[in-house]
Write a protein that binds this DNA or RNA. Structure first.
Lengths: 224, 224
DNA sequence: ACATAAACTTAACAATTCGATAACTGGATA
DNA sequence: TATCCAGTTATCGAATTGTTAAGTTTATGT
């Protein structure tokens, strides 16, 4: 199972995290300050690091920066813990390469969910890092934005391409209209969800009718 | 739409929350003390609970702890309301498994934003957690919205799928018609309870007769 | 900066599927 | 045996999606 390092000076939170993460089946190590944490990271290469921002000796951001500068540590995902007031450093943290933030106080469920989500993201990114998606007769080339069906090249618009790519990235999975709107159109989009239908229609016309299946009352899915 | 339970003894805040959440399209129920709140939670399984910390009979943390210890309630997100002076033991609160905290006085916009954020978080993170339910020869894939019996794929409608999923999520547990109506059809639904029978009938036809058992005078259960 | 084309959104209407209800039947229970 | 509860079926209306076209925005090249 995945190995997680928790770098946190407050023993209560440290134990709370350790207890709950181990209950989820992760292997957990802890360090109580930045110096020890960094040593652990450099010698043990954990699979994920949870870093409190305010810790003695070396703070979270510094550790993050050091990790990102070393080739063998650069890929390790990092979750930063911040107290409620410290949210100013968010931008700085992003620059330092943290992958997620959790503001204290947090629920254990939340942090576990985020750990899992992060692992999932890393896994799927590593998997889908290939620029070409092949699904039967369909080929989706992300790099040069090209789609071919059999031998024929298919011209898609930007939205159509995004929609197809998202659906085809997980064949079989049902995507609700809301989910599609949120991910392609953005969180703040306040529009008709019928818009999705129209784009689906266009995709079906340009490709084949039965590539995208309608799940009535739920959404759409790319056939497996 | 999602069903929210507000447990709060102050009638002003209770109504304020109810009014504003309903305006946002949520279905809202209220309880004025911990005992009634807990009953409502256990019998109705709301989709989210807003809990005042200081309420008569059973306080918020106790309810939270009870919820987390019961399998069918453990996943329900909880927002805790605290008065400004109340210094909650943070770690205790975290262990109890609340998902978010709001300090009184709060603005309605804030609480609505948090409710929505929490739903979004839970949806995107938790739903991908347990995607497949296996019950003997029956397989229920939530992500793909697919049901197979043995090797055969079974086409279910939305309502049928929801019904089967709920029943199969706790084999052996008897669900009353009222519970099923409130949980799947919504708090507001005022209809014939024969409706449930018809959908059960359809499920039995599409699957096997003896998967869903009738408990005369009570309701239905999925066989263990 | 402008004209033009392309892409996107919205609206309206058609087609289809689904679900609620009523009414009747059958069986269990007291 | 009477009564109550669940099973069953067909039908109608409602909800969802498909489809087309017109209107609006955005992008592109000159």
């Amino acid at each position: 199972m995945a190995r997680i390092l928790v770098v946190e000076d407050d023993p209560n939170i440290r134990e709370l995290l350790q207890y709950n993460l181990e209950k989820e089946g992760f292997e957990v190590r802890t360090a109580e300050d930045g110096q020890k944490g960094l040593e652990e990271i450099e010698t043990k290469w954990p699979d994920l690091v949870i870093l409190d921002l305010m810790i003695p000796y070396r703070d979270g951001l510094e550790i993050c920066r050091i990790m990102r500068s070393k080739r063998e540590l650069a890929h390790i995902p990092v979750i930063i813990l911040t107290a409620k007031g410290e949210e100013i450093d968010r931008v700085l943290g992003l620059e330092m390469g943290a992958d997620d933030y959790v503001t204290k106080p947090f629920s254990t469920r939340e942090i576990i969910a985020r750990v899992k989500a992060l692992f999932r993201r890393v896994q799927t990114i590593e998997k889908t890092d290939e620029e070409v998606l092949i699904r039967g007769r369909l080929t989706i080339n992300i790099e040069n934005y090209e789609v071919t069906l059999g031998e024929k090249k298919v011209d898609l618009t930007h939205k159509e391409f995004q929609l197809l790519y998202l659906l085809a990235s997980r064949p079989g999975k049902v995507f609700t209209r809301d989910f599609l709107l949120e991910h392609i159109w953005g969180y703040e989009y306040l529009g008709d969800s019928r818009t999705v239908d129209v784009h689906i229609r266009h995709l079906r016309q340009k490709l084949e009718d039965d590539l995208i299946e309608t799940i009535r009352g739920v959404g759409y899915k790319f056939i497996e």
